[in-house]
């Protein structure tokens, strides 16, 4: 079995007196694609935010290849460089061009040469079909294009793990595909990823493992085929039913 890239043990997250996640443990191995699903507000996004310490945690610990990720550790910026995060609303920097958005972090934090990173950035942009947009401003791009740039911006840091937080939730339906194709492609390259999504067919295609988060904890954990065809728990069945539509009285053809 491949080495664990990320290990979360007994994580508890509270906002004031509301418990969001309780005693949650999860391991993600090298090259594994873990998809987290669950109803709105179940703590999926909070879990991702805890992983790169955008949220402080009230119990348990999170380790990236053995390194403790914690709010008050001095090496937090270095650890975050190894954790790529893509947000629902892209969060490109509006005052920088596409290329500058991508170059900012590697040049400032990894002290890599601008020329070197620039070449890599252009190569990555080409791979997601946006090479000609390198000098555009974020506002000139469509949502799908912005999200692909955001993915490149995360990739250029050579992260150990990528976190995707409902990256297609803000997109028009016709743009969802172009973004998901990029992610499927990354999965094929063996990138380690945690993906939070509501796109069930995508989840089924891309996941090595599916996790249903409900009631502050991991309720069900299985391979995608089992999860979608033979869910174990009643809650999982109920959750999957929310994606189905049936008409009782359909006119006979």
């Amino acid at each position: 079995m491949a080495e664990a890239v990320l290990s979360i043990s007994h994580l508890t997250k509270r906002f004031d007196d509301q418990t969001i996640l309780e005693d949650l443990s999860l391991e993600v191995r090298e090259g594994e694609v873990v998809v987290i699903v669950g109803s709105s507000g179940c703590g999926k996004s909070t879990l991702l935010r805890c992983i790169n310490a955008l949220e402080d945690i009230q119990g348990g610990e999170i380790r990236l290849r053995g390194d403790l990720i914690s709010h008050n550790r001095k090496n937090l910026p270095e650890l975050r460089q190894k954790i790529g995060m893509v947000f629902q609303n892209y969060e490109l920097f509006p005052h920088l061009t596409v290329l500058e958005n991508i170059l900012l972090a590697p040049v400032k934090t990894q002290k890599r040469s601008r020329q070197n990173v620039r070449e890599e950035a252009l190569a990555l942009l080409e791979r997601v079909g946006l090479k000609e947009k390198a000098d555009s401003w974020p506002r000139q791009l469509s949502g799908g294009q912005k999200q692909r740039v955001a993915i490149v911006r995360a990739l250029i840091m050579h992260p150990e793990i990528l976190l995707f937080d409902e990256v297609t939730a803000a997109l028009d339906p016709e743009m969802v595909r172009e973004v998901l194709d990029v992610i499927v492609n990354l999965a094929d390259q063996g990138k380690t990823m945690i993906i939070v999504t509501h796109e069930m067919s995508f989840a089924r295609a891309v996941a090595d493992r599916i996790i249903l988060l409900e009631d502050r904890r991991i309720l069900e954990e299985s391979d995608p085929e089992t999860f979608f065809t033979a869910p174990k728990t009643e809650q999982a069945k109920k959750f999957l039913r929310t994606f189905e539509f049936n008409r009782k009285n359909k006119a006979e053809a």
Binding site: Q81, F93, K108, Q110
Partner: peptide, 21 residues
Amino acid sequence: RIQEESALSLGLTRFQTFLHV
């Protein structure tokens, strides 16, 4: 605020985030 989080999650320090983003 999420602009700041976006920069932090790329590994920029708080100072770099303030200065560049």
